[in-house]
Amino acid sequence: MGDNSVNLAPAAEDAPFPLTATDQWVLSQTDEEYAYHTWDGLRTIIQHNDLAVLKRKPSDLRRYMKWTAATKAEYGNMTKYLLAHRLPKAWGSPPFSPVSDTPFADPSDYCVLLNDWPYGFAPGITHIVVWTRTVIPTDPDTGDMTAESRKTVAEFVKRYFVDSLGGPGAAEDRVLWFKNWAALQSVRALEHIHVLVKDVEPAVLQKWTTS
């Protein structure tokens, strides 16, 4: 049986971050009822920019809510926690002073980490978060990336992830990426993108996240 204890997290109305309609639906489920995101399904979600439907397994979402509430109580906000434990000390505190004003142009301006709280994916899919101290421009009206930002990020993902898997062709079908709209971000003060990879060896994941 899955871990379905509803006491693992605060009540939905006391959630430590805004719950989407998808989150609220997930919390009404058991782990046995949950349908994992498949690779083809994720490709469709990202192609249609339908990011609000991304979901965690019910027990994982409850644990994430509980952990977020405890972390905010101890550190004040998620940014302080990440700066203290996950991101380079050399970055200092916001507002940052990146080496380059172009996102992902200088390696010292970004940090590649495995996601501590991934969405509920089918086996073989790994969730990576790339944090950057360089601002990624967004449309102020929609909160989504500008066309130029999308091009910049796509070029970085190809260079850093796709090319290391063998370049164009089959490797491109093993890498997806997205940037949550501002309204969906749980850590808005720190710029980041999400990268999903399929069937990547642990040694390669380690190389990406320790470079």
Results as ranks from 00 to 15, higher is better:
1 M>K: 12
3 D>Y: 11
4 N>S: 13
5 S>P: 08
6 V>P: 00
7 N>A: 14
10 P>N: 04
10 P>T: 09
11 A>V: 15
12 A>G: 03
18 P>I: 06
23 D>W: 00
24 Q>L: 15
24 Q>N: 11
24 Q>D: 05
26 V>N: 05
26 V>D: 05
29 Q>Y: 05
33 E>M: 11
37 H>V: 10
37 H>S: 10
40 D>C: 08
41 G>W: 13
44 T>S: 12
44 T>F: 15
45 I>H: 04
49 N>M: 07
56 R>I: 09
56 R>T: 02
57 K>C: 06
61 L>C: 03
63 R>M: 14
66 K>P: 04
68 T>A: 15
69 A>M: 04
71 T>L: 12
75 Y>C: 08
78 M>V: 11
78 M>T: 12
79 T>R: 12
88 P>F: 10
90 A>Q: 12
96 F>Q: 02
100 S>E: 04
100 S>Q: 07
105 A>S: 10
106 D>H: 15
107 P>G: 06
108 S>F: 00
111 C>L: 00
111 C>Y: 05
112 V>S: 07
113 L>Y: 05
115 N>K: 03
115 N>M: 03
119 Y>I: 08
120 G>T: 07
120 G>W: 01
120 G>H: 04
121 F>S: 13
124 G>M: 01
124 G>H: 05
130 V>W: 04
134 T>S: 13
136 I>A: 05
137 P>H: 04
137 P>L: 03
137 P>G: 02
138 T>W: 03
142 T>A: 08
143 G>R: 04
145 M>Y: 06
146 T>R: 02
146 T>K: 03
146 T>Y: 01
149 S>D: 07
156 F>V: 00
157 V>I: 10
160 Y>L: 09
161 F>S: 07
161 F>D: 05
162 V>N: 00
164 S>R: 14
164 S>K: 13
164 S>D: 12
166 G>Y: 00
169 G>D: 05
175 V>W: 00
179 K>P: 00
180 N>L: 05
180 N>F: 01
185 Q>D: 02
191 E>Q: 13
193 I>Y: 04
194 H>M: 07
196 L>E: 10
198 K>C: 07
199 D>G: 11
202 P>M: 00
202 P>T: 03
203 A>E: 15
206 Q>R: 15
206 Q>W: 14
208 W>A: 06
